[in-house]
Amino acid sequence: MPDIPENTIAQRELQPGQRCEVWIASVTGERELVFTSRDVLVEAPNWTRDGAALILNGAGKMWRFDVGSRAVSQVPLTGIPDLNNDHVLAPDGTGIYLSANDGHLYRAALAGGAATRITEDDGFFHFLHGVSPDGDELAYVGIEAGDFTQPGRLMTIPAGGGAATLLNVDGHCDGPEYSPDGEWLYFNTEAFTSSPGHAQLARVRADESGMERLVKSDSVDWFPHLSPNGRLASYIRFPGGTVGHPADLPVDVVLVSTGDWSTPLHCWPLIGGQGTLNVNSWSPDSTRFAYVAYPVG
């Protein structure tokens, strides 16, 4: 096993009296509580391509939650530091790309085993959010020198490693994710404001052209996730004035049609934020998606 650098990002833990809840929401408006824990704080569900399980991080590890049996098991990864909540599944359904607390990106088999580092020591911390539909490219946010007072930059890199590309997008950005056809990157950005915070949803073509604002709102909107069929999207809505995407706030998980981002189809209020909906959590049939709440009491 290679030497593992010391972690530089603290792991989140449940506060006294707090629990985490994994919910599955339907596009028809219903929702179901499928998992609760008062011991381990889990975050950021991905739905596996076969529709059988959710993949989440918690306590620096990866976990598999079987949707049918409700069984939970650890994904046995080696050669990687503790993980954060930025992870995406490879389009072939057998691999996973991961962000670790040393600021680097890794790839591994979804079944577990040795992980391989993708990114180089290029002066950035790397926070993964998207993989292109053909599996050839990753989209991530780069934070220069790990200085979180600096804006997040929209970046891409070959999935097998290599030279990174910095996209010409202004303002602090986060959550870049490819559209199902691979033509667009969807993300949130502060490019539309002169004040700190007030992130809004946007998209830009993968060739850096045609940037569009998706909705204008008084809320602070983060992490747009398109359904596999491209017809719907989920995102998380923070209260106006929120800077960043902190934890433990009253937020809304919002469902919209990609044909009209300004008119929510359904909203689910909860206590959460960080960890609730950081990555794409849609089921492969585009009928459901998962999210995490963190209520207290």
Rank of each mutant, 00 (worst) to 15 (best):
N57I: 00
P176F: 00
V131G: 01
A53S: 15
A10K: 13
T193V: 14
F65P: 10
G58Y: 05
A114V: 14
R231E: 15
I96F: 02
Q274A: 11
S37Q: 10
R107K: 11
R107D: 00
C173G: 01
R49I: 00
V220W: 11
F124G: 00
G259S: 13
P81E: 12
F65G: 07
T78Q: 12
W222I: 09
D50S: 01
V254H: 06
R203L: 09
L166C: 01
W282C: 10
L154S: 07
G112S: 09
R38A: 13
H129N: 13
P269H: 06
E6A: 14
Q74F: 00
A108D: 02
D92V: 02
V215C: 14
L214K: 09
N84F: 08
V40N: 00
A52H: 10
R19M: 10
P284G: 11
R12P: 11
A247L: 08
H266A: 02
G68M: 12
K216E: 15
V215A: 15
N229P: 10
I157W: 01
T8M: 13
S132L: 04
P16H: 10
I271L: 08
P269M: 04
G130I: 09
T193L: 06
I157P: 06
Q74W: 00
L255R: 01
P269Q: 05
P45L: 05
Q74T: 12
G240V: 05
G275V: 01
W23A: 03
L83W: 05
A145M: 13
L214R: 04
W261P: 08
L98K: 09
E120V: 12
W268E: 01
L167W: 15
E43A: 03
P180M: 02
L77T: 06
G135I: 07
F127I: 04
A114R: 15
I96T: 07
F238C: 08
P224L: 03
F223T: 14
A111Q: 11
R31M: 13
M155Y: 07
E183L: 14
T258C: 11
V254I: 13
L201P: 04
L167H: 15
I236V: 15
V253G: 09
C267W: 00
V67Q: 12
S286Q: 08
Q18I: 09
S257I: 01
P176T: 03
E32F: 05
Y106H: 07
D252N: 14
V34H: 05
S283A: 15
T8R: 14
Y97R: 01
D66H: 11
N85Q: 10
G123S: 06
M62H: 08
R70V: 09
G17R: 10
N85D: 14
E120S: 13
N46W: 10
V169F: 00
F124L: 05
I271P: 00
F125G: 04
W184M: 09
L83I: 05
V34Q: 06
G113D: 03
D181Q: 02
G244P: 12
F65S: 08
G130T: 08
N229D: 15
G171M: 07
S227Q: 06
H87W: 02
A53V: 05
F35Q: 10
S26R: 07
H104L: 02
R70Q: 14
V279S: 05
